[in-house]
Design a protein around this nucleic acid. Structure first.
Lengths: 213, 213
DNA sequence: ATTAAAAAGGGGAAAAACACCCATTAAGTA
DNA sequence: TACTTAATGGGTGTTTTTCCCCTTTTTAAT
């Protein structure tokens, strides 16, 4: 069996290099290069002979995050297999990542053998999922769409601003909307998320990765 | 120069093993074992011939966190050098960790060479600090005692209730105080913590472990 | 015992948040 | 086309929060 190439995208350099060291220790895999975010990745991919078989992609990154980056990769380099690597056990994040085109989703607390298996299987079959992630997926499919709480982009924006200690008036200005529309967003979300006030909104946002501390 | 031993404490297994792989690639260092939290560490240290020269300790862990664990290590195994490894750039966390007895504090986005240097220097001189961390320390020393923001028990109670989506009237009843006293608590805390409204209070509480999600 | 400081409580007013109602417009779809 | 739905925003009123400045009570210290 020939050796396959891997690229690691991870904002924490030390972890990035540590994972690289681990991957290099696997029999059939070599790390081509590592980078700190999606933007850097896209730049480096433009160099000839720099196209890996697999990208190990962190989900939470500054500049260009894992989801957005994966979408671009899927379109521009459809032959590259992206495997997500994350601490996020959040259903919505996982689904978004897979929708974006990731061939696998690994939690950062798996054993190194699982990583090697994921790499091997992805090369062989084009996908790999741990039991954990599969279960999460099945559960989230069983929840029929009606019970699935959906937050729109514009609402998400509103929530983030609310978490930033802004008043509704300030948020309205920032989002170029009438204060009354903001009122509506709030009323809707309170109802949808079953919270009593802005505090509940903030807690929900933090728990669900909408707002990062 | 003889080879020194390292133990890695990190809750995400894959990262733990990845860092182990990296450390093993350093000329003068070998990983003795890895573990997932402070509790596991303390258990494993009890086995004879299991005492490392250096412990690389993650700060944010479940069960027994880095700070508490380091304190115990300092008392029970004073010859072991603890180096903190974290994503937290938060002044208070760093200071707490160093006070607990850590000989160094590395951010997870340093280069692997820095990790090797930190290990070497710690063996040689008993400590190592990156420029980043040193600067943070100097800055926080210049801030006259602002790091010792003290929150009283009664205030802490008030904050927790605020985080529980209660109104001030409800909190007043629960704490057997006049709403006006609650007003005073709030005004004081806003001033003390430099926040603009209840949201800021909630964020502070979560960041500082006063309120647990 | 005297004094100082901290904790608790108060009055009043402005701003913000919250809770309903309903109207318009744009976009999608049967 | 007609019907539906989503997004936006207006009206009105109540409640809560926030921000002043102030007094009394309790606790701690000299």
């Amino acid at each position: 069996m020939k050796t396959h190439t891997v690229v690691i995208v991870e904002d924490h350099v030390l972890l990035s290099q540590a994972i690289a060291s681990l991957v290099n220790s696997f029999k059939d895999f070599d790390v081509l290069f590592t980078c700190k975010n999606g933007k850097e990745l896209l730049t480096k991919l433009k160099t000839p002979n720099n196209i890996p078989d697999i990208i190990l992609m962190d989900v939470n990154m500054p500049i260009l995050n894992g989801i957005e980056t994966t979408e671009i990769i899927k379109n521009e380099y459809p032959k590259i297999n992206v495997i997500a690597l994350s601490v996020e056990e959040n259903d919505i994040t996982i689904i978004k990542m897979l929708k974006a085109g990731a061939k696998g989703y690994l939690l950062k607390d798996v054993e190194k053998d699982v990583l090697e298996l994921a790499l091997t299987e992805t090369i062989k079959h084009g996908y790999y999922h741990t039991k954990d992630v599969s279960n999460i997926l099945i559960n989230s499919l069983n929840e029929d769409d009606s019970s699935k709480i959906q937050i729109k982009d514009r609402e998400r924006e509103f929530i983030i601003h609310t978490c930033s200690e802004m008043t509704y008036k300030e948020i309205a200005e920032k989002m170029f909307l009438s204060p009354k529309t903001i009122d509506g967003y709030r009323d809707n979300l309170f109802q949808k998320l079953q919270v009593k006030n802005r505090i509940g909104l903030v807690l929900y946002a933090i728990k669900n990765g909408i707002y990062k501390l």
